[in-house]
Design a binder for these strands. Structure first.
Length: 117
DNA sequence: CCACTGACGAGTG
DNA sequence: GCACTCGCCAGTG
């Protein structure tokens, strides 16, 4: 098994798997959460290496502008991403963009206070 | 080894 | 919002 080396890909996949349904995250955020800030490009590379049937919800990952990075290609992957997002209620506009303000996944870094100040 | 490319991002003007 | 630069790492010729 080639699992001898601590593939950073697996680290990225682990984060992507945590993105809740109906939400999206960004390449940069995934890299950051994986403990590898600045490796956004490698996240894209890792997702591109995924095979059909993987349990990784790669379609929930968009770039920092909220755009689907596969819009450039009419590849089946691009279509699949739009289809899956639509099925989860995520709105993608004509410019292949998603409102990060509305659908961006917010990682809770602090616990909600049960009692306000 | 070098140049170039790619599902990226942040900074500057 | 647009154009440009630099940083990041893997794969290819």
């Amino acid at each position: 098994m080639p699992a001898a080396s601590p593939s950073s890909y697996e680290r990225f996949y682990a984060i992507v798997r945590r993105i809740p349904r109906g939400r999206v995250s960004t390449y940069g955020a995934v890299a950051r959460l994986a403990g590898l800030p600045g490796h956004a490009r490698q996240v894209g590379y890792a997702l591109a290496a995924l095979r059909d049937g993987s349990a990784v919800p790669w379609h929930r990952v968009v770039n920092a502008k909220g755009e689907l990075s596969l819009k450039r290609a009419a590849s089946p992957s691009g279509v699949t991403q739009r289809l899956r997002l639509a099925r989860e209620g995520v709105v993608v506009d004509a410019g292949a963009r998603v409102s990060l303000a509305r659908f961006g996944w917010r990682v809770r870094e602090r616990v909600a206070r049960s009692a306000p100040d």
